[in-house]
Design a protein around this nucleic acid. Sequence first.
RNA 1: GAGCCAUUAGCUCAGCAGGUAGAGCACCUGACUUUUAAUCAGGGUGUCCGGGGUUCGACUCCCCGAUGGCUCACCA
Length: 487
Amino acid sequence: MEVENDLMAVRLEKLKELQGEGVDPYGGRFERTHTTTAVHRHFEELEGQEIALAGRIMAIRGHGKASFADLQDRDGRLQLYVRIDNVGAETYGLFRRLDIGDIIGVKGRVFRTHRGEISLEVYQLTLLCKSLRPLPEKWHGLKDVDLRYRQRYLDLIVNPEVKQVFIIRAKVLRAVRSFLDGRGFLEVETPSMHTIPGGAAARPFITHHNALDIDLYLRIALELHLKRLLVGGLEKVYEMGRIFRNEGISTKHNPEFTMIELYQAYADYEDMMNLLEEMVAYVAREAVGSTTVTYQGEELDLTPPWPRLTMFAAIEKYTGIDFSLITTREEAGRAAAELGVEIEPGMDWGKIVNEVFETKVEPHLKQPTFILDYPVAISPLAKRKKENPELTYRFEAFIAGRELANAFSELNDPLDQRRRFELQMAARAAGDEEAHMLDEDFLRALEYGMPPAGGMGIGIDRLVMILTDATSIRDVILFPTMRPREE
RNA sequence: GAGCCAUUAGCUCAGCAGGUAGAGCACCUGACUUUUAAUCAGGGUGUCCGGGGUUCGACUCCCCGAUGGCUCACCA
């Protein structure tokens, strides 16, 4: 171990000293009877009782022959009162050499100090782990975001609100499962390593299997395997899992993130809208106790029903231009240019419409909103609308100006699906690295027959961000992807 | 990928027209048997992110690089 500073040297010295006296600085099992929060919560019943606690020392206030310390465990803190009369000279000598950050087990009596603080009068004290590195400062905590992400354990020790975020995250996962399980969905697990990365437009990570001597791709979506399960007759399935996309990192994008996808046979995208708004409201109630949340100073009301707006209507609302009357690529390009939206030469009508939507409409969609009927060109897995085959039965749900969910009535016509894949492959050949790849086995499955179905994907990280008022996706991922630092 | 900003003690931060660095917490020594950002007396513990350059002299100015943050691009 490298002794990086004097503070560590002092602690190492104490460690040797204690070992020399026969104290095991890395003790074993310790049976505790309560947690600190339980003591605060049930003080009336516990007052005068003897209990055992374990945790990390976060502050020490020495007063000669008596001292105070703050003990932190999984759910809170409690003050310890250690008196030489109660613990004896030997233990008191040990206590005086403890450092902030050391982990101890204590037994003692619950009481309230003269100043009114619920505390533990310690009779027995056991060192369970000597800490060799100094913790960040008690008042300001750890602010350096680089260190907070790289050394999340420190962040969790000294910034209590961080723990809360991940407790909410766990509640979100649990609520999503109980909501879907309660509606008869079956949770399944499909491969994370794909021979063809499908179901989304994104660049994949590539890895290699040695025994088979083949390249494999980390999945960029769950979609195609779950639809195979619809073919197999499972009818209502979902998977909550990690997705990997080899793309840029930003406050809204982490290379690996968590997504839930669900598919329901004999349903359509209208059913998915109903399901989503009910699910989000349920999850919010379970995770944070309310369907209204404050996000970045703005009140968001997640209570169903959410407004439903076609993409055309939304664009007209914010730009005054009705793209349903614009049918050629040229006209669309001119309209976009007039709005100041940048268009690239290769874009077709559908992509232009989408570009206008993203730049002119998306930022306005703060309150939960469904946007319906996306162009077929950007929706290669969605069923075409009967009234207008250039559009699809697809919606995206937006909250706080960001996409939360993407859903459609699933395309189950194998011939149309094959044509759409072929168009994607052509785009790929023309240099679009993110165009979908043709998946022959998926097409074969569709040829056996997939029931009409509604399907949906929801970004769990973004949902957690909204519920925890987080501005960066890194604040809701315990160990976000970071460039390694030279040691 | 581009622009802007940041990087100084273990942590949070000051500092400088260019003259080799400072506070609070933490830490060390001592006092103190109900304190709670305990208090009192004493002690500064440093690769000023790294490498070049300018200069008599660089933490400070210039160039290159590293890491991070924000914005934009990418992410249909």
